[in-house]
Amino acid sequence: MSLKRILAVVAARNREFYRDKAGLGWNIVMPAIMVLGFAFIFSSPDESLYKVGVLGSVTGDTAPAFLRTPHIQFIAQDDEVGAIDKLRHHRIDLLLDLRAMPRYWVNELSARGFVAERLLWQSQTNAPQAPQRETVSGRAVRYVDWVVPGVLAMNVMFSSLWGVGWVIVRYRKNGVLRRLRATPLSAGEFLVAQIISRLLVVSSVTVLVFAGTNALLDFPMRGSYLTLGLVFLAGAIALVSLGLTVSARVRSEELADGLLNLISWPMMILSGVWFSLEGTNIWAQRIAELLPLTHMVDAARRVMLDGAGLQEVAFDIGILLVLGVVLLTLSARAFRWQ
């Protein structure tokens, strides 16, 4: 490995990136528009189904009438602290405690919580004892606060996958790789250079989008920027490696595009970027745990919303890095210049 050769390729790739004004705009403006757009469009997501967490179990006739309300999904919770966190993060809309004295928690910033609470009151009209009302204290989050870490992570995913995957296939198809191959530049040097260049791009774009949208939306950032940066960096390493693996041999841009879409769309839906998977199909949740985007979104959310420290997200970062190293090794083995 020659550092000089790697840096020369990094510089050339960077030039290609920032001189392509159309592409540059797309890379920076698009994610910002997505964050802002979704903040407004989905600021009160309108789903017919409400999710209510229930602590303690009640069966048979003794169950309150509320538990029979149609269009509400009741999800059993066994951990009070965790359940309150879910409520704070809009993963459930209301939390009902039936273990002793009936009481419930509501997130006062949640529009859906507001409606769910009204439904609860309605079902209580001839109950002997009204449940006690609690609100999640202090650090309630808006839906937009909850969705921002997800959108940032999703943008890291798209930029990482296409920024190397699609670019390498294009180089292979139009003959740039063939020409490079005729020089002493090694495949390893070339790949490392592509990764470095893309990590630089992803980092700077993420910083820009974060700063720009934060100025407009003022979302919470309770953890350290360093930890958040490490989460995104680890995620980018995993996804850049995934992009490299996809592009190791493919010659057709259309096929590469299709494969990358095939990978990224299910991830986007299953990784809880837009809505929580709480209470959905257990298999969907199992699969989600295997996806790198899930770990990036979860960890970023915990850092930004709960102020999680490096130790608390170390597991997710570890998984992302291991995945990155495995995929990188795989793609370096599989790589073909032509």
Binding site: A12, R13, R15, E16, R19, D20, G175, V176, R178, R179
Partner: peptide, 10 residues
């Protein structure tokens, strides 16, 4: 080469 592409934007 008979047919060669160079990187764009340089």
């Amino acid at each position: 080469f008979q047919h060669t592409a160079l990187q764009d934007f340089q």
